[in-house]
């Protein structure tokens, strides 16, 4: 069974708001898959339906080859879920928090698995510390450890790195790589497209629909555009000129401009001409691959 998650024409409305407008998706075993999109795109609603927390209005949903509705208990024991606002007990220690989650899953011989998870998240030296006294990054790792105590086959992460500093974030990604190594399938939501680049496949969501679904590399190729990076001065003036000159998508990064173009010499020449006529001094140009963010903004604008 290669498809560990199968979603067919899934829909969910909240009174008059269509949160998820019929999405279909298959996720393979061992993937690190990301649902990406702005607030209100339907990411969290989707992940909540997948974890059985809310019921879809229509559509088919199966995990590990079984229909979610009819196999709730079986599925509950096979999945882990780390929500945006994960709940730890501040007045319990790290050890006690994990013990609590083990008991919820009716697991009583948890101590070996707990040791393993503490090693894995490098929390062993702090196991007797109260959760309230942990840093943000450590709390997040503890919450992750709690969600893994019952050895789930699929792990759902809802915006796991929001508000976490870069060092902890890098650490967290290392841990996720380790989980993939153990054969766990990960499905996460994130508003950060640079994080989505780390995933094997990505679904870009907007307004309740999937607008692109592929590997990050293929999604970037699909729009057939490149980014012309121009180091120039005064860069702000250059930015304004491009912005006002028509429908080119442009971003300003300090003294650099990134302009999305079709990679043809005539397009580059045209931009250079505009700059020359406006006395913009150019000190370097190169063609770079668009980022997922470039592609995403492009798709949404079109």
């Amino acid at each position: 069974m290669n498809n560990i998650i199968e979603i067919l024409d899934l829909k969910k409305n909240y009174s008059s708001v269509e949160a998820v407008k019929g999405i279909s998706l298959e996720i393979h075993k061992g993937e690190m898959f990301a649902l990406v999109g702005p607030d209100g795109a339907g990411k969290t609603t989707t992940i909540r339906m997948l974890t059985g927390l809310i019921s879809p209005d229509s559509g088919k949903l199966s995990l590990l080859g079984k229909n979610i509705k009819e196999n709730k208990n079986f599925i509950q024991n096979k999945i882990g879920y780390l929500s945006q606002k994960f709940s730890l007990y501040g007045d319990l220690t790290i050890d006690e928090n994990i013990e609590f989650f083990a008991h919820i899953h009716n697991i009583f011989d948890y101590s070996e698995r707990r040791n393993e998870l503490l090693e894995f998240t490098r929390l062993t030296p702090f196991r007797d510390r109260l959760a309230d006294n942990l840093s943000g990054g450590m709390k997040q790792k503890l919450a992750l450890a709690c969600s893994l105590i019952h050895r789930p086959e699929i792990l759902f992460l809802d915006e796991p790195t929001t508000g976490v500093d870069p060092v902890s974030r890098r650490d967290f990604w290392k841990i996720l790589s380790g989980l993939i190594k153990d054969g766990i399938t990960i499905l996460m939501t994130t508003p950060y497209l640079d994080e989505a680049e780390r995933c094997t496949r990505v679904a870009l969501m907007n307004d309740g629909k999937i607008i692109a679904l592929d590997t990050p590399a293929e999604i970037k190729k699909s729009i057939g555009k490149s980014i012309l990076e121009v180091v120039c001065s005064p860069s702000r003036k250059a930015y304004k000129i491009i912005k006002e000159s028509g429908d080119l998508e442009v971003q300003l990064f300090g003294d650099r401009l990134n302009i999305m173009i079709e990679n043809r010499q005539e397009n580059i020449d045209e931009i250079m001409n505009i700059f020359n006529q406006n006395e913009i001094k150019i000190s370097g140009t190169r063609i770079i691959t668009p980022t997922l963010e470039n592609v995403f903004i492009h798709l949404i604008n079109n």
């Binding site: 702005p38 607030d39 929001t162 508000g163 508003p191 950060y192 971003q251 300003l252 995403f296 903004i297």
Partner: peptide
């Protein structure tokens, strides 16, 4: 912190 990519981009336009 916690703002989506579209809003973030327009926020940076405002900062610029």
């Amino acid at each position: 912190s916690g703002v989506d990519p579209i809003s973030r981009r327009s926020f940076w336009d405002l900062i610029n």
